[in-house]
Simulated assay, not measured.
Amino acid sequence: MAQTPVGRTPFDGIYLRPDPRAYFGGLGRFGYQTPHHAQSVFRRLVAARSGTVLDLCCSYGVNAALLNHHLTLDDLYARYTAPWATELEVADLVEQDKEFYASRRRDDAVPVVGVDISAPAIEYAVAVGLLDAGFTENLETGPASPALVKAAGAVSLITVTGGVSFLSARTFHQLLSAATEPPWVAAFVLRTGSYRHIADALAEHGLVTEADAEHTVVQRRFTDLDEQRYAVAAVTATGADPTGRETEGCFHATLHLSRPPRDLTIPYNSLTNT
């Protein structure tokens, strides 16, 4: 996938651990919260569009945890940064997490397939039961495996909360070409870049993309002033105004929802209010 944009702080190392403790510890210091905003949205989308969910750039299955369990993002931060958790061996944490998630499973839980380039993250999410299937594949550089193509065939909703900056039309073309029926695509997109190239690709598969540029959600705080300067300049370059958002110290994201024309009878705002 693409490199982290110059000027933005990379967090690559937190995705290479065998469990999510470094993920929550590292991002928690900067108040990362996109999955929190996505939780209620994704539940409404699943209620309107039943079926299997495919979470792109799924990392340790955080979106699956929030979608299918009686949990909040704050619950996960508290769990994985607690002193007792830091002392556990990985195998012991995995065993405890199996029970933790199983005991909090919602009655309306849906199958979730995860795709990410981090093998440790995928392996953990599958091992503890957050993902029904996981694929360590980079669709930006190669074709989807036959197994992923088969899994994507049953998908009704594709979600992305933290990876659009690293994706191009290539990934979405492969997934939508494999789908039996056109899935909905819900993506939280940082205002530092454009979603146009992906929206155009989705349109080739018959999907109409809607977004409310005036309604944004906080992603996380900037790590330093250099990162803030980068974000303010990048947002300005897209033609948007960073005043009151990025100028106040945080990345902001906009939700883009893509659907077949026949499904547009359900108002965007009724599905996406966060």
Rank of each mutant, 00 (worst) to 15 (best):
R49D: 05
T72H: 10
L27M: 10
G31W: 08
A65K: 02
S50M: 09
D55P: 14
L56G: 08
L56D: 09
T81I: 07
R43D: 03
S40W: 06
S59F: 03
G26W: 05
G28W: 12
V53F: 08
H36T: 02
S59K: 01
F24Q: 02
Y60K: 09
L45E: 04
S50Y: 06
V53I: 13
V62T: 15
A78T: 14
L56Y: 05
R79W: 08
Y60S: 12
T72R: 05
Y23E: 10
V53H: 02
Y32V: 04
A78C: 08
H69G: 04
R29V: 14
G61P: 06
D75W: 06
L56I: 15
Y60F: 15
C57W: 05
L66C: 13
Q39W: 02
Y32I: 06
L76V: 04
S40A: 13
R29Y: 11
Y23C: 04
A78D: 15
R29A: 15
A65S: 08
L71A: 07
R49Y: 14
G31K: 04
V53M: 12
F24V: 09
R21I: 00
L45F: 05
L66W: 07
G25A: 13
L66E: 11
F24C: 03
F30P: 08
A38T: 11
T52M: 11
F42G: 00
A38Y: 02
L67H: 07
D19H: 12
H69K: 01
L71P: 12
Y23Q: 02
S50K: 14
V41H: 01
Y23H: 11
R29D: 13
D55Y: 11
L54V: 07
G25P: 13
R21K: 09
H36Y: 09
L76H: 09
R21L: 07
V41E: 00
S50H: 14
R17G: 11
R29G: 15
P35W: 00
F30C: 00
T81C: 05
Y80S: 11
A38P: 03
L27I: 03
G26K: 01
D19P: 12
H70D: 14
L67K: 03
D55A: 06
V62F: 00
L56R: 01
F30L: 08
S50F: 01
A47Q: 11
L76W: 05
T81L: 01
T72L: 03
Y60H: 08
V62N: 02
Y77N: 03
H70G: 09
L45S: 07
G26N: 04
D19V: 10
L76P: 09
